[in-house]
């Protein structure tokens, strides 16, 4: 019975299709993670501003994105934009936009909290030895912020990778959907394919997220020495 299930994985181009699906997942997540990190760092710096208007606007943005389920955001961008402006965004572009909007908000808040967690005397010591404000950022704040940022940023990255499984609802066939297609196509003949396919997908996700964790560990160690 057990060897029946794994057979499905190697029927036709099934395994290749799973990998293609994984590539869709990976390239959407990597692109949106990169954009989120870049924009999030900028947003985080802006969020530390004392200006009440800036504070309010960024706060509303953050809370809006946090409160809204990602699926609702996906539907708003994919279907809502077409309805409102008659503009057709394809599923992948919509996903990229939504994940970047979401990632930027979350990343921004992480950067903000990392920056304000740097003790006040660090900045003051910098001023005392005659550094100007951009030098203080360059040499004092940013290096310390980066170290504190790694664990939560990695957490966000892996969360984003896993949340991409929602994009099937806007027609993007990613790894999980390919898995379901394979299960369904064989469910009359190989009913126990489910476990094998989901098991394989588990490992695919694992081997996508694991290297990211390893990289994080490496960076943390390296930057701590400095």
């Amino acid at each position: 019975m057990q060897d029946l299930g794994i057979k499905v994985l190697f029927m036709g181009s099934n395994f290749e299709r799973l990998l293609d699906g994984l590539w869709v997942t990976i390239h959407i997540s990597i692109l949106s993670v990169l954009l989120s990190i870049l924009l999030g760092i900028l947003l985080g710096i802006v969020m530390t501003s004392k200006n009440i208007v800036v504070k309010a606007v960024t706060r509303v943005y953050l809370e809006f994105v946090r409160i809204m389920p990602q699926l609702v955001l996906l539907f708003i961008v994919y279907f809502g934009v077409t309805k409102t402006f008659g503009l057709h965004l394809n599923g992948e572009t919509s996903a990229l936009i939504v994940f970047t909007i979401w990632g930027t908000a979350e990343m921004g808040d992480l950067v903000r909290s990392a920056i304000i967690s740097i003790p006040k005397h660090q900045r003051e010591s910098g001023l005392a030895i005659g550094l100007n404000s951009s030098q203080i950022y360059r040499y004092i704040i940013i290096p310390q912020t980066l170290i504190r940022l790694i664990p939560p940023a990695i957490n966000l990255t892996t969360r984003m990778i896993k949340t991409t499984s929602l994009i099937v609802l806007i027609g993007v066939v990613e790894v999980l959907k390919v898995g379901q297609q394979i299960i369904e196509a064989n469910r009359y003949t190989v009913p126990n394919a489910t476990l094998w396919i989901y098991g394989t997908i588990f490992f695919l996700y694992f081997f996508t997220c694991w290297p990211i964790s390893l990289l994080a560990k490496f960076l943390e160690k390296k930057w701590k020495v400095n």
């Binding site: 499905v8 029927m11 036709g12 181009s13 099934n14 299709r17 066939v173 959907k177 379901q180 297609q181 394979i182 299960i183 369904e184 196509a185 064989n186 469910r187 009359y188």
Partner: peptide, 14 residues
């Protein structure tokens, strides 16, 4: 549908 055999589904060759 891409996962509703036998009406609309994707076979092992995609």
């Amino acid at each position: 549908f891409s996962d509703k055999k036998p009406f609309g589904y994707v076979d092992e060759n995609g």
